[in-house]
Amino acid sequence: MGTLFAEGRERNRAFSIWGAAGGSGMALGSLLGGVLTQAFGWPAIFFVNVPLAAVGVVAALMLIPVDHEDRGARRFDVPSSAPTSAAGWRPASACTSRSPRALPWPASALPYSA
């Protein structure tokens, strides 16, 4: 958004609208989520995102201008992305695993460990 709008009043307005939308979405989402779960049960929270995402995609396609700038040939960098992904995946899987053998520290250091 910082590059889409001109510096000054136009960009400041865009960021303020973005912030207001995020804040009101957080507050209304919490309130309406409670109403939704009370009326239809907790599985209903998964269905509310489908129409909202569809509206968001359509709005983005209509409102965001197409970037015609030529950036040259771009390729996916597998030699760099594979080790980076593995480095992030290992700690996350170790922390969420229920097996004490997967942890890089003693299982006794964790509360409620088996």
Rank of each mutant, 00 (worst) to 15 (best):
M1R: 12
G2M: 02
E7H: 12
E7G: 15
N12T: 11
N12F: 10
N12L: 13
R13F: 12
A14T: 04
F15V: 08
I17D: 04
G19S: 02
A21G: 05
A21T: 06
S24Y: 08
M26L: 13
M26A: 12
L28C: 05
L28A: 13
G29N: 00
L31I: 09
L31E: 05
L32K: 03
G33P: 01
G34W: 02
V35T: 07
L36V: 04
L36C: 02
T37R: 04
T37Q: 08
F46S: 09
V48E: 00
P51R: 00
L52E: 03
L52T: 08
A53G: 13
A53D: 11
A54I: 14
V58T: 09
V58H: 06
V58K: 08
I64V: 11
I64C: 07
D67I: 09
H68G: 09
H68F: 12
E69S: 11
D70H: 06
R71N: 04
G72I: 07
G72Y: 03
A73G: 13
R74L: 15
R74D: 08
F76W: 07
F76K: 05
P79N: 02
P79F: 02
S80V: 12
S81C: 11
S81A: 12
P83D: 02
S85Y: 13
A87C: 10
W89V: 15
W89S: 14
W89L: 13
R90K: 15
P91C: 05
A92G: 12
A94S: 09
A94W: 00
C95P: 04
C95I: 15
T96R: 12
S97M: 10
R101K: 15
R101G: 14
A102C: 11
W105I: 15
A107D: 06
S108N: 10
L110P: 00
P111S: 06
Y112K: 13
Y112M: 12
Y112A: 10
A114F: 12
